[in-house]
């Protein structure tokens, strides 16, 4: 499999503090990769760098072989990278359907020159698939947190990405909701979508991914299968402090 994303020597500093420090990793097309790390480890900063919301101080990021450093967020979406947000950012005073129709105005989708009606049909289908089919006419402001998470995911998928960055998709969700979402994300990956997922709910994450990258203080401290990461000394130390063992049992 070829690399869809290659990150080399990526660094980002806020004041004197490195949020991301000399980061190297690559993701192959079709992979699903988990990113873990304590709060403030630089995970969301990495997503902000990858999607053009922040500009790195140094380093390169190649997506499908193309440099994306310095590209604007909308340009990166057009290249095929979509993201969800840790704290959902719906368009509150717009209907659920309209929320998912906004990406149809991206350059990538405009190029397809589909009619308004077919964009709408696609959006409805997408909403159906995430379980919001009954609520297309609701205002986003009236949705529950779980529904907003799904809406956020649907909006990211509506950009028709090749790489999907999910920032804590399970946070604040009840177990029953996670049980629905987990296979849905798995199915997306099975259809060929490359996914990078930040998650604190390790039990769920470890079920979903075959590779995990662990972060602490902006530095990569581990990269491997879930089992390898669970037994990685540096990771255990970062999460539980020195001396803790049996992390895999969590």
């Amino acid at each position: 499999m070829e690399d869809i994303l290659t990150v080399e020597s990526l660094s980002k500093r806020f004041g004197g503090l490195y949020a991301v420090h000399d980061l190297h990793f690559s993701v192959q097309a079709g992979q699903i990769v988990g990113i873990i790390g304590p709060n403030g480890a630089g995970k969301t900063t990495l997503f902000n760098l990858l999607t053009g919301f922040l500009r790195p101080d140094s380093g390169t990021m190649l997506f499908n072989g193309e440099e994306i450093v310095g590209k604007k967020p909308h340009e990166i979406v057009t290249k095929g990278v979509a993201r969800s947000f840790q704290v959902v950012r719906p368009f509150h005073q717009m209907s659920v359907l309209q929320n998912v129709l906004v990406p149809s105005l991206s350059k990538k989708l405009l190029k397809k020159s589909l009619s308004r009606a077919s964009h709408e049909a696609n959006a409805r289908e997408l909403l159906e698939s995430v379980g919001l089919g009954e609520k297309t006419g609701f205002l986003a402001a009236d949705l529950s947190h779980g529904d907003l998470k799904r809406l956020d995911l649907a909006r990211a998928l509506a950009t028709e990405p090749d790489l999907l960055l999910l920032d804590e998709p399970f946070s604040g969700l009840a177990k029953a909701e996670i049980d629905v979402l987990l296979p849905f994300i798995e199915a997306l990956n099975n259809k060929g979508l490359t996914i990078i997922i930040i998650e604190h709910k390790l039990r769920e994450l470890m079920k979903l991914v075959k590779r995990v990258i662990a972060f602490d203080f902006g530095v990569k401290i581990g990269d491997g299968t879930p089992e390898e990461i669970a037994n990685n000394e540096a990771v255990i130390k970062a999460y539980l402090g020195g001396g803790a063992r049996g992390f895999a049992a969590i």
Binding site: T51, F53, K72, P73, H74, V77, T78, A82, R83, F85, R89, P90, F91, H92, Q93, M94, V102, P103, L105, S106, K107, K108, L109, R155, A156, A158, T159
Partner: peptide, 10 residues
């Protein structure tokens, strides 16, 4: 409604 989300939508 949300300029950041709008950018993220392309």
């Amino acid at each position: 409604e949300d300029e950041i989300a709008s950018m993220a939508s392309g």
